[in-house]
Design a protein around this nucleic acid. Structure first.
Lengths: 135, 135
DNA sequence: CAGCATCCGGAACGATACTG
DNA sequence: CAGTATCGTTCCGGATGCTG
C-alpha cells in the first residue's frame, strides 16, 4: 500500500503523530485543512470571492454565523494571508475584508468543491436514505 | 463542522444568498462541508483514490488517526455513498474499502484542494509568521 | 459599526480495554 | 484483522454584555 504519490510528486505522506499541532513536518493537506476545513472559512472565502465586504455585510450574508465565529474566522484567514483587512478610521469605523491573491487562488479549488456540492447533494441525500433504510 | 444536526443526523439548512444557491434556498456547500469537512474524511478519500484499501492499511497510512475515528469516518462516508465496504468472510476477516463512483467524483475537487495545499503551504507559513511577528 | 471578554454546554476526539 | 464499548478530556462555538 505505498502508492503514495501523484503527478506533481505531492507527498501524500502523513508523518505527524502529533496531529494536534501543526509544527514542522506535517502533512500539507492536513495543515491546510486544519486551517481552512472548519465550518465557516470556506463560506467566508466563497462570499468574498466576487467582491470585498464589510463585517456586518458578511455576517448578514452568511446566515447562521455568530459574530464571534465571524471574527475568529476572519482573523484566522487574515493570519494565513488569505484575507486582507482594511480599516477606514471614520465614525463609525468601516472595515473592509477582501481576498488576497493567495485567497483568490484558494477560492478556485474551493469553488470547484462548491460546484460538486451543488451538483451532488441529491445523490448524497438518496444514498443516506438508502443506507439508513437498510440499517 | 459540527453543525446543528438533529438526532437523525439531518443537517439544518442555512441559506447563503451571497453566492449561487438553488431555488430551495438551502446552501449545498454547507451541507457537503458538514459531511466531509471534518478532520479525517478528506484524508480518507484522498488515500482511497489511487486504490482500495483494507482497514488497518488505511489506519497505517493516515498517521495520527485513531481506530475509533477511522471507523466513524468510514461509516459516515459509507452512509453518504462515497465509500463502499466489502467484507470477505475469511479468517481473519478482510474488509476492503473503496471509493464509489460518487466518491471518485468528489475526489477530483478534493485532490485539487490537496494540490493547492501542497503548493501553497510555504505561503501560508510565511504569511502566518509575518502576521505573528507584527502582532 | 466592528469588534473583544467571559462563561459554559455539548460535541468531537483520544486512550484504553474487550470481542468475533 | 476489524472492529465495538466506555470513559475522560479538550475545545468548538453560542450567548451575553461591554467598548471605542
Amino acid at each position: 500500500m505505498n502508492a503514495r504519490t501523484n503527478e506533481e510528486g505531492v507527498p501524500l505522506l502523513y508523518t505527524t503523530p502529533g496531529f494536534a499541532t501543526d509544527a514542522g513536518g506535517s502533512c500539507p493537506i492536513r495543515e491546510v485543512l486544519d486551517r481552512v476545513g472548519d465550518t465557516w472559512s470556506i463560506l467566508v472565502i466563497l462570499n468574498l470571492q466576487p467582491a470585498s465586504m464589510r463585517f456586518n455585510a458578511l455576517k448578514r450574508t452568511i446566515e447562521g454565523i455568530s459574530q464571534r465565529m465571524l471574527t475568529v474566522t476572519l482573523r484566522s484567514l487574515e493570519r494565513d494571508g488569505l484575507v486582507s483587512r482594511t480599516v477606514r478610521p471614520t465614525t463609525p469605523p468601516e472595515v473592509e475584508y477582501a481576498l488576497t491573491e493567495l485567497g483568490q487562488s484558494l477560492a478556485v479549488p474551493i469553488a470547484a468543491l462548491g460546484a460538486w456540492a451543488a451538483g451532488n447533494r441529491d445523490n448524497l441525500h438518496s444514498a443516506r436514505a438508502a443506507f439508513d433504510a437498510a440499517a
